[in-house]
Design a protein around this nucleic acid. Sequence first.
DNA 1: AGTATAGGTGAACGAGCGTTCACCAGTCAA
DNA 2: TTGACTGGTGAACGCTCGTTCACCTATACT
Lengths: 190, 190
Amino acid sequence: MTKLSNSFKKIQSFYDQKKRMPSYSEMAKLTGVSSKNAVYKMVERLCGLDLISKDETGRLIPGKSFQGVRLLGYVEAGFPSPAEEELSDTMSMDEYLIDNKEATFMLKVKGDSMIGAGIMPGDMVLVERGREARDGDIVIAEIDHGWTMKYLHRRNGKIILMPANPKYLPILPKEELKIAAVVKAVVRKY
Amino acid sequence: MTKLSNSFKKIQSFYDQKKRMPSYSEMAKLTGVSSKNAVYKMVERLCGLDLISKDETGRLIPGKSFQGVRLLGYVEAGFPSPAEEELSDTMSMDEYLIDNKEATFMLKVKGDSMIGAGIMPGDMVLVERGREARDGDIVIAEIDHGWTMKYLHRRNGKIILMPANPKYLPILPKEELKIAAVVKAVVRKY
DNA sequence: AGTATAGGTGAACGAGCGTTCACCAGTCAA
DNA sequence: TTGACTGGTGAACGCTCGTTCACCTATACT
């Protein structure tokens, strides 16, 4: 554990708590040095490593690999050794899952009608409004004054809402069918 | 759309891009007013709504409902109308999914051995290292020089690794069994 | 007509910012 | 032993920060 990466972790956890970067003086206190210039040089080093950046006004902003969790390989291909972890990429969940924050909503799944698609009751789904639903998408649809989540299929001009559970029957909407949102992601927490 | 919430959105998207709050002068440019004091009063109003906060040094930090996506109700209980959306809570994916960033890793699932638990091939799992595995947890385990993801069960002192797919057989480790990590969440993107 | 009130202007204040300077103590290779 | 380098101190610089002041509109409500 180098001193540099130790200081970086302190800065990282400061940002996690406050959602802003510490000033140079604050970093001096965090890292235990008593001169702003020592910090300044350290920040320059961190900028070189792309861990921290500066915007056009000189203010500090988190660098590319600042936020998020480390991304590893495949689970069946083996779990990396501690040495390999150093090289791994990082990824923020928010960035990974959300394209358009304004139109994205999270909602909780009730019922088991999509269990065959790996969506269990109690899961959270991230849905995006105003996006065009394509054949095979999972959608939130209004059907006969109620809302359901189903696969959307188009068969020669007609729309079919397919559950992913043999217990339930496909829905052939008679008249009104409003697609409220398209399911973009599923999230389950244990 | 009030002017206040319009300005707030500009600030929000500034933060999204730069990962820091704009200064009062920057906000003045963003919102089109020409006096810092006008911005100051606006920020006070936003602080009252908990959209923006100040830390102990007076610097601005994002408020509680600043980041993340809006959280809605149950999907089968109905999709809220636009009016209801105003009242909804918000939630950051990072905060929701990650407790201990240092020990959390993301890895991609290969194979269908946990399909019964709603974990499909290609899904991402968030795993946490160094956490004690309890009975019923899904774990990443080293078994006979390989790594797998399985349910962990304890039966009178013995450990069984259970797949969630009838195609595969439970694993009764003979000797060495190292639990590398516990699966905390599953994420699937469409 | 009168008058609160919400929201804006423009100037001012001290404090703290990011940055730079000159200098110093160790470490390591030549 | 010398000399270059790395990482630190402490003081200084101009600039921008957050904040406050007095004053200025409009609109809304008696």
